[in-house]
């Protein structure tokens, strides 16, 4: 466990060494704040519903940017050969990188706390959905991150990692969208709409934590972290 902490710490600090991280966080904050506050005074309601509704789309770009470097850089600079000959299990390394990226995402989300503060100053929103929305956003982010990390473990090119992670997350989003579900045989519709990320956005938007959605997000996260460890192990069967 201590070694996992050492990896988390190292990975987390390495995000902040490069200026890119600050740029991402600033773009994320300005973007979400702008998109939230622009229609806010028109709607004239003190809720964060609109904000949490934006996050799935914002994360679609933000999360691949966080994860693209994780494995691709290790592969490119060959540091992976040292990392995987240190006395660490593949699972420890994967978890270390995952929790570091989650901590980074959580930091970015936490910095958006200006929005609820503003709301509480100018109105009186219901705190329950706000907290629920943040927890949901983190769970959803975890699932995105696991996908992004898994994609990054297949390439040594960061740009490729970014684009493929975007494609993978987007694909998982739209399989549950009516756009797709209207065109497939009716038998598959429940399956597709369950698997699609889309179906599980709604409760987050409302700030309600539904245990089915929690199970869904944790499962997606778990599956992709497992696949990530498998893809590290694939060097062994080459």
């Amino acid at each position: 466990m201590n070694t996992v902490m050492a990896i988390i710490k190292k990975e987390f600090t390495s995000y902040f060494i490069s200026p890119i991280a600050y740029v991402f966080i600033i773009v994320f904050l300005i973007g979400t704040n702008f998109m939230f506050f622009q229609p806010f005074f028109l709607i004239n309601q003190a809720t964060m519903r609109e904000y949490f509704g934006l996050l799935p789309w914002v994360f679609l770009f933000f999360v691949p940017a966080i994860t693209m470097r994780s494995w691709a850089e290790e592969k490119k600079s060959k540091t992976i050969e040292l990392l995987l000959t240190w006395p660490l299990s593949d699972a420890q390394v994967v978890l270390g990188k995952f929790f570091a990226s989650l901590a980074f995402l959580a930091t970015a989300i936490a910095l958006s706390v200006t929005i609820p503060i503003t709301l509480f100053i100018i109105g009186s929103p219901d705190p329950g959905p706000v907290i629920g929305g943040y927890v949901g956003a983190l769970l959803m982010g975890a699932a995105y991150l696991a996908i992004g990390l898994w994609v990054s473990s297949h390439t040594e090119n960061q740009i490729v990692a970014f684009i493929l992670a975007w494609v993978a997350i987007f694909a998982l989003m739209i399989i549950g969208h009516p756009m797709v579900t209207m065109k497939i045989p009716a038998v598959f519709v429940p399956l597709f709409s369950y698997l699609g990320l889309f179906t599980h956005f709604e409760s987050i938007e409302r700030g309600v934590i539904d245990s089915r959605d929690v199970v869904y997000y944790l499962s997606v996260t778990g599956v992709f972290l497992f696949l990530n460890a498998q893809s590290l192990g694939s060097r062994k069967s080459e």
């Binding site: 050492a6 190292k10 540091t79 050969e81």
Partner: peptide, 25 residues
């Protein structure tokens, strides 16, 4: 020590050795 001496170039020497020590428990 692998062939091309792969190291985390964004860390300082002290940070890196401390990390290498920690993963070695």
């Amino acid at each position: 020590l692998p062939e091309s001496t792969p190291l985390y170039s964004d860390m300082t020497v002290r940070e890196y050795l401390s990390f290498a020590g920690k993963v070695r428990s």
